[in-house]
Design a protein around this nucleic acid. Structure first.
Length: 556
RNA sequence: GCCCUUAUAGCUCAACGGAUAGAGCGCGCCCCUUCUAAGGGUGAAAUGAAAGUUCGAUUCUUUCUAAGGGCACCA
């Protein structure tokens, strides 16, 4: 736990004289529970070889009585690492803590009093909820939960794409084709149709912009069509969110910032930064931030851009929540856009330096040919189809309906989250629905397995009475994993990388399953201890999966 | 043309500048008279190329090659 780590670091600083001494958790368990490279890092302050100075540091550490209460042995290894092994009692004490804290094990108060805004999901109105929005929704929700676990005030905002020229395009097409119904399917067809026609008829783009200008000007007829599009889309999205089990605190959407934008344009402090670009648009120069492409604030016809809406959003959020961090869980194709937005926000003085602006820039789902899915050409995969297919496959394995839903959705979510945020993911039906190996269902299955073992005993909540015998390698290895759970949560949040939590949980589950296959729990030696260990593993897996937004069925 | 990102096993992905580069799928073999075989065990198999920084480089820097994304009136 964190206290333990701090104690060791404290002792290490005293013994080595290195002020910024750090500890790491070695991947290989032969190198102890914690490891430090202080002896390697500062050859200037030490004399002799790294191994020799490591030896001197260890001598001092071995005389540190406070340290010896928690550490069993300290050794030097390799080129001069100092490795620490924790006492068994300290490791076993983790189980008692898990038992005491239950769902709260792993949480902390580190973020108390600070607010984090997570901008995520943000689908576009009048387009189907595609596979492309899965990453933002799932990763965003995981980040939301991670920061919440660290005690932050967290605000989730679904920044709906419900404004802009795309509606001009749609209104245009609706006027041309005059369709009988405005279902999402029709809207999508019209959107694709527009781009097909616009290739031949260049005036169409201008016409769409005109329509958008009317919408921004408040034309009641066009506003009505717009509202109908929004309503139909929201109904569609609600169904997907329901399937995913995702609830987002707010959904202000881009249209919400209309008046905010007008205020900005009228504000002289902001106005003075706007210059006329080559073709008559109002732009903000960003060269002082090393960005050559100026940011377009207003188009030449005076209508607002996506960028203006994002800046207005920052202004609003800072005023309303005074956040420490604003996380934009948005794909990497918008990297330049956010670099511009963040720079412009500083230039316009919308946000102070105490607030971090973060763009996670996740990789995209690519079609099997390695290319981007295109909404303009209507080439997307609908998320709902993917989710329903996953549920169907889970049902085939003999699960009842509600369990099949948890398992199918769990598989999809885990597949998404296990990839490092930045890398592109090739969409593959088979891999995505994987129910075996390193997968969501593997983790869920392991939890169900611990439940099943515990259900076989008459004891309701296992406790450790008195002494426990010698621990075998598998047991120690599991304990070492369990103790690290809180640190993993912190690291995953800090680096905006839910995949680190996935790795950890998979590793823990696989250690437990290995132990399970090798040793008898009920009726075996150390039964009390093993039951408590089983309970601890189940609880930590459950806590971790909950943070990832994955359900854990009791049985499967 | 300019900018950003990526390159690891047959495939899909991991690896705070650290020690023997980990998994899953696929392939080979083994384990249900034992607590959930959606499991376990075991075998073969990888850092795009070349320099540099460092005690130590998959990780940092430079060049090259390849792929993906972006570059003002889409969001």
């Amino acid at each position: 736990m964190a206290e333990i780590e701090e104690k060791i670091i404290g002792a290490l600083k005293k013994a080595s004289g290195v002020e910024d001494a750090t500890l790491e958790i070695p991947e290989n368990e032969d190198f102890g529970d914690y490891s430090s490279n202080v002896a390697l890092r500062a050859p200037a302050t030490n004399h002799g070889s790294p191994r020799e100075s490591a030896g001197r540091i260890i001598e001092k550490l071995e005389a540190d009585e406070a340290l010896l209460e928690i550490v069993e042995k300290v050794e030097t290894a390799g080129p001069g690492f100092i490795n620490f092994w924790l006492k068994k009692d300290v490791l076993v004490d983790t189980l008692r803590q898990i038992d005491r804290k239950k769902m709260d094990f792993g949480k902390s108060e580190k973020g108390k009093g600070k607010t984090v805004i997570v901008d995520y999901s943000s689908p576009n109105i009048a387009k189907p909820f595609g596979i492309g929005h899965l990453r933002s929704t799932i990763i965003g929700q995981a980040l939301y939960n991670l920061y919440k676990a660290l005690g932050y005030e967290v605000v989730g905002d679904n920044h709906l794409g419900d404004w802009g020229t795309q509606f001009g395009k749609l209104v245009c097409m609706i006027e041309i084709e005059n369709p009988k119904d405005l279902s999402i399917g029709t809207l999508e067809k019209l959107y694709v149709e527009f781009h097909k026609l616009a290739e031949a008829d260049l005036s169409l783009e201008d016409k769409a912009r005109e329509c958008f200008k009317k919408l921004e000007g408040g034309d009641p007829k066009i506003k009505k069509i717009w509202q109908a599009c929004v309503d139909v889309s929201m109904k569609e999205f609600a169904r997907v969110y329901e399937l995913l089990g995702v609830k987002i605190d707010f959904a202000f959407g881009e249209s919400y910032y209309e008046s905010e934008m007008r205020q900005m344009v009228d504000n002289p402090k902001i106005r003075k930064h706007l210059t006329k670009g080559e073709e008559g648009a109002s732009v903000i120069d960003l060269t002082e931030f090393g960005i050559k492409t100026p940011l377009m604030f207003l188009k030449k016809d005076g209508t607002t851009t996506y960028a203006a809406r994002d800046l207005a959003t920052i202004r609003f959020r800072v005023r309303k929540w005074d956040p420490k961090i604003i996380i934009y869980e948005v794909g990497m194709e918008q990297t330049l856009h956010f670099r511009q937005i963040f720079a412009a926000a500083r230039i316009l003085g919308l946000v102070e330096s105490k607030t971090d602006l973060v763009h996670t820039a996740h990789g995209l789902y690519l079609a099997p040919d390695g290319k981007k899915f295109s909404t303009r050409k209507g080439k997307t995969i609908k998320l709902e189809e993917v989710l329903n297919e996953a549920i169907k496959r889970a049902e085939k394995l003999g699960n009842e309906k509600s369990v099949a839903k948890d398992v199918g959705i769990g598989a999809i979510k885990y597949f998404d989250l296990m990839h490092s945020v930045g890398s592109d993911v090739i969409f593959d039906w088979e891999k995505m629905m994987n129910l075996e190996g390193n997968s969501g269902p593997y983790l869920q299955y392991t939890v169900a397995r611990t439940n099943s073992v515990l259900a076989k005993t008459s004891i309701k909540s296992p406790t450790l009475h008195g002494k426990y015998g010698d621990l075998n390698g598998e047991e120690i290895s599991i304990l070492r994993s369990l103790i690290k759970f809180p640190e993993v949560i912190e690291l995953a949040a800090k680096s905006y990388s839910p995949n680190l939590l996935c790795n950890y949980l998979y590793n823990l589950a696989s250690k437990y399953n290995s132990f399970y296959g090798k040793h008898k729990i009920i009726g075996g030696e150390n039964e009390d201890f093993r039951l408590l260990l089983t309970f601890g593993v189940g609880q930590v897996l459950k806590n971790g999966l909950t943070i990832l937004g994955i359900q854990t069925p009791e049985r499967m």
